[in-house]
Computed example of a mutant assay.
Amino acid sequence: MAMAIRYERPYSHSAHWARRLAWVGLVVFLAAALSHRFGPLTTPHFLVLAGSGAALSALAVVLSGIGFIRLWRVGARGGRAAFVALLLAALPLGVAGYAAYAYFTRPMIYDVTTDPFASPPWLKVPVAHQDFLARPPVTLQDREIQATAYPELTGRRYEGALDRVLEGVRKVADEQGIVFTGEAGLENVISDLEDLAVKPDGDTGGESAITVVPVPSARPLEEGFLPRIGGPSDVLLQGEWRSLVFGFRFDVSIRLREEEETALVDMRVASRYGPHDLGLGAAFAERYLKALDAQLLGIAGN
């Protein structure tokens, strides 16, 4: 009687360990992200935990590759586990890869402004425990680096009364998620609607007034001297903004200044933690100013 031979496929331990590590890495990463976005976890601790999750995911990818090699060479069981490990590791490694790309392609600055010569001041200087994310103070060289990297980040001049521009600034800030924590100089806002409405000669008030819409124009060139940073006639608004997905904290300062029947708006955005904002500060400032342009183009001096 012939003896039946039963072939037993080898077992790939690396593939199954890859799946386990990928699960752990994903859970650690998601827990850190949710705690940072909605909980009390600070950015330095988030970076440590998220980096740990990404490291576990990277190790899972290596073990998954070994599992696929074993499957190809000897038909070892574990192909499905190795594939699942790759799927689970995609999110932590994708975020880590994007962060690394931004870190090396964006300038290493954490404070950007539309006025590099005299940026809007802080009403209250933001203070945060940096842990291992120590950063130097902002220098003139940092402003020059910013001007080279983000040449389109400039202030705005609007042909409108200061109170009308302030109204638009507040509305856009609310839409963009800025929460104001301090204000100064509001007594300088004087309602003067005569520069927003022009009546033709002989108008008795029965006809509708022709309105002038505030239109943004380029900032004037510097005159070779440093303008005042926070003068007595300025309106200063300070607040904070958090990024949508991971909730990175940024401090925001907006300065309004009335000059020759126009209103100048300058903005400053600084990351709360770390020496590098990965380009998020400049991106948010540009998005806010574009939204402000659109908002003020629809304001008429009624």
Rank of each mutant, 00 (worst) to 15 (best):
M108V: 15
L162C: 05
F29S: 07
F38A: 04
V235H: 00
A81L: 08
G65H: 06
L88W: 07
P137Q: 13
I178M: 00
L93H: 00
P227G: 00
F132C: 09
R255Y: 06
R255E: 05
D115R: 10
T43Q: 04
D163T: 13
G224N: 01
P121V: 08
D142I: 15
E223S: 07
A54V: 01
V235A: 00
A90D: 00
T43Y: 06
V165D: 10
G247F: 02
G65A: 11
Y288D: 08
V198K: 06
P126E: 15
V95L: 09
L86S: 11
T113E: 10
F132Q: 07
G274R: 00
D115M: 11
P92V: 08
R20D: 02
G206A: 12
S208L: 04
A60D: 04
L166E: 00
V235W: 00
R70F: 08
E261G: 10
R143Y: 06
M108L: 15
E152H: 11
V165A: 11
I178S: 03
L21G: 02
A15F: 07
F46K: 04
G79R: 14
L162Y: 01
S64G: 14
F117N: 13
S217P: 05
P136I: 12
R73M: 11
R19Y: 05
G182D: 14
L162G: 10
T262I: 00
S64P: 08
P126G: 15
S233V: 06
E152T: 14
A294Q: 09
S14I: 02
Q141E: 15
L71I: 11
Y288S: 11
H276E: 01
P151Q: 12
A294F: 03
L296C: 08
A55G: 07
H36M: 04
A282D: 12
Y150K: 08
T114N: 09
V61F: 07
P116S: 09
D277H: 02
I229G: 04
Y7C: 01
A58E: 03
W17S: 06
T154P: 07
G79E: 09
T42N: 10
L93V: 06
R20Y: 03
H129N: 12
R272F: 00
G25C: 02
V112H: 15
Q176S: 12
P137Y: 13
D163G: 12
Y288E: 04
